[in-house]
Design a protein around this nucleic acid. Sequence first.
DNA 1: TCTTTACGTCAGTCATGTTGACATATATCG
DNA 2: CGATATATGTCAACATGACTGACGTAAAGA
Lengths: 165, 165
Amino acid sequence: MTDVKTPINPLFLREEELRQGIELLFFAYRDFTAEPDAILAEYGYGRAHHRVIYFVGRNPGMTVSDLLAILRITKQSLSRVLGQLVDEGFITQRPGTVDRRQRLLELTEKGTELERQLTERQRARFAAAYRDAGAEAVEGFRKVMLGLIDEADRPRFPQRGPGWR
Amino acid sequence: MTDVKTPINPLFLREEELRQGIELLFFAYRDFTAEPDAILAEYGYGRAHHRVIYFVGRNPGMTVSDLLAILRITKQSLSRVLGQLVDEGFITQRPGTVDRRQRLLELTEKGTELERQLTERQRARFAAAYRDAGAEAVEGFRKVMLGLIDEADRPRFPQRGPGWR
DNA sequence: TCTTTACGTCAGTCATGTTGACATATATCG
DNA sequence: CGATATATGTCAACATGACTGACGTAAAGA
């Protein structure tokens, strides 16, 4: 009779491996958000503001609908945060040229500066982790993370074609 | 004069790579938490309850201080959530034997069942991602994720010694 | 013209975090 | 033993960011 918790048991191995994955994700996310949160607090902003600034900076000219689809929150929730950022001069809205109901979003210069300041820490964290882990590990990381994301959103991360490298 | 945004430019490549990392983490976390959140809502609970149940299940007999250190929230915040879970019979507290000020936390049978139900989806998501990515990718994933976590918490994820595999 | 879509707004609620102050029991140290 | 520190709990007030539901406007599309 073998102990269920002995590492020799393959079922326990698998369970342990999966739980480690869950915990890696929890701790990484916790630490990854802590630094920007501290900066945001100085502006009286929260994590939601960072997300909006980040994705608008990444996709200049995106619509409100696009943003809602990415964040998966209600328009009422977005409205408060986005409204503040527009009022305080971090983001501009201009009507779409082809569909004038749309409000195309863009960072102002001030917004770009805040985005840079906030995301800088996170980029640095990734740069260090990538450097320490090596190129092969990065490719593995990418594969696993993609597998964790709902299939519908995976096309956001295209394969690197022949134009790359 | 070359276009700054041409994929040939190595600085842009790096920037793109880092931003993809940031986004992978955002989307993975967003999708990873969505399923348990839906189950929790049926109980009138939130994500905070899941975190408490998860870590108590993972570390039976852990103290309140241990839990606070993991979650990085205030004791007042924890108190509400933990109090509910104790009151409603998901978690038991018993005084420590060596230090009787401590309240050692454990899941009840009911708590174990809820934990299983909640985490099952997340384990399944990891199992699928690991399976599709392959063993080598999983090792890379582990390496990168560890690099993203504050050094102080990395010892929570020990290397696999000779007793493993 | 009628309907649908994109976006906005007002109002109320809930979950989860915060700070600050204070209380109790137990452990530890001089 | 007495003083101090630690582990835990509690009350109160507040902020953030999510939610639902209802309603409104302008523009696009059938």
